[in-house]
C-alpha cells in the first residue's frame, strides 16, 4: 500500500512537469466525454425518455457510468495498456521486483488526464440529481458508493481480459475493445431496454446490471428487479467476484505461460 501511494505520487509529479500539455490533454478528455453527453442530450431532447425511464434518470445512469469508467481509465491504465509492457519487454523487469504484479501495473501508470472525463461525468450526475430532486438517505448514498466501487472492479476485470489476450497476441487488442468500450456504450443505459440475450450477457457474464443498474434503479425508486433490499446491497459484489476470476485467469493462463519477447 505504501508502495502504491509512493508510485502514484511520482506519477502525479511527472504529469505536473508538463503543465500545458497535461492541461490540454485533460481538456481533450473533457471534450471526448462531452461528446457522449451531447449525444445523450440530443437523444433525450428528441425522444423525451427511454422506455419507462425519464430523461433525467437516463442522465443519472449516464453520469454513474462515465464517472466510474473515467476512474477506471485513470487507475487502470497499466492494465488496459498491458500490451506495452509485453511488447517493450518491461514485464520482465516487473517479474523481478518484489512487489505484487497487479500493484505494480496499477502503480506504474496513473493517468491523471482522465480527470476531465470524471468532471463531465460528475457534472452530468450532479445535474441529474438536481433535476430529479432525489430524496437522499444514508442508505442510498452507501448504495451509490457500492455501485461505483463494484462497477469499478468489474471494468478493471474487463481490462484484465484484454491484458490476458495480449500475452498471446499483441495486435488483436482492437477486437477486445468491444468488451470495454462496447460495455460502456451499451450499459450507460439501463439494461432492461435490451432484448433477452443482451440482458443475460450484461447480468450474468459481464454483470453491469447487478453492479450498476440494480443499485442505481433502487436509488431512483424504480427497482429493476423484484428482490429483497439486502440483495440489492450485495449485488455489487458481483463486480469484485468478476475481477477476482479475471485476475486468476490472467495469472494462471497468462503469466504462467509468459515467454519474454527478448531484446
Amino acid at each position: 500500500m505504501r508502495y502504491l501511494y509512493h508510485a502514484m505520487r511520482m506519477q502525479l509529479k511527472c504529469a505536473a512537469q508538463y503543465r500545458a500539455s497535461f492541461l490540454m490533454q485533460s481538456i481533450a478528455q473533457c471534450v471526448m466525454v462531452g461528446g457522449d453527453l451531447l449525444a445523450v442530450t440530443v437523444l433525450m431532447n428528441r425522444f423525451r425518455g427511454l422506455g419507462h425511464w425519464s430523461a433525467e434518470e437516463i442522465l443519472f445512469f449516464f453520469g454513474v457510468m462515465q464517472l466510474t469508467f473515467a476512474l477506471c481509465e485513470c487507475f487502470g491504465r497499466g492494465i488496459s495498456n498491458f500490451s506495452y509492457y509485453i511488447g517493450g519487454g518491461e514485464f520482465d523487469a516487473m517479474l523481478l521486483r518484489p512487489q505484487p504484479l497487479l500493484v505494480q501495473m496499477i502503480g506504474n501508470r496513473l493517468d491523471a488526464r482522465r480527470l476531465g472525463g470524471m468532471l463531465v461525468g460528475g457534472a452530468a450526475l450532479a445535474m441529474a440529481c438536481l433535476r430529479l430532486r432525489l430524496h437522499w438517505t444514508a442508505g442510498k448514498a452507501l448504495l451509490l458508493a457500492l455501485a461505483s466501487l463494484g462497477s469499478f472492479f468489474l471494468i478493471l476485470g474487463l481490462f484484465l481480459i484484454e491484458a490476458t489476450v495480449s500475452f498471446f497476441s499483441v495486435k488483436s487488442i482492437e477486437m477486445v475493445n468491444v468488451l470495454t468500450y462496447g460495455g460502456r456504450q451499451a450499459c450507460q443505459y439501463p439494461v432492461d431496454i435490451y432484448p433477452r440475450p443482451l440482458r443475460l450477457l450484461f447480468t450474468w457474464v459481464a454483470p453491469f446490471a447487478l453492479c450498476m443498474h440494480l443499485p442505481v434503479s433502487v436509488i431512483l425508486d424504480k427497482p429493476l428487479m423484484d428482490v429483497p433490499i439486502w440483495q440489492v446491497y450485495a449485488a455489487p459484489l458481483a463486480g469484485f467476484a468478476f475481477f477476482a476470476v479475471m485476475a486468476l485467469v490472467w495469472r494462471r493462463v497468462g503469466v504462467t505461460h509468459y515467454r519474454s519477447t527478448g531484446s
Partner: peptide, 27 residues
C-alpha cells in the same frame, strides 16, 4: 485481415446495440 475482422466485430456489436437502443427509444 485481422484488423478488418476486429473492425467488423466491433462495428457489428456497436451497430446491434445501437439498433436495439433505437428500438427502445422509438418504442
Amino acid at each position: 485481415r485481422g484488423a478488418a475482422l476486429g473492425g467488423v466485430i466491433t462495428q457489428a456489436f456497436f451497430g446491434l446495440v445501437l439498433a436495439y437502443l433505437y428500438t427502445a427509444l422509438y418504442a
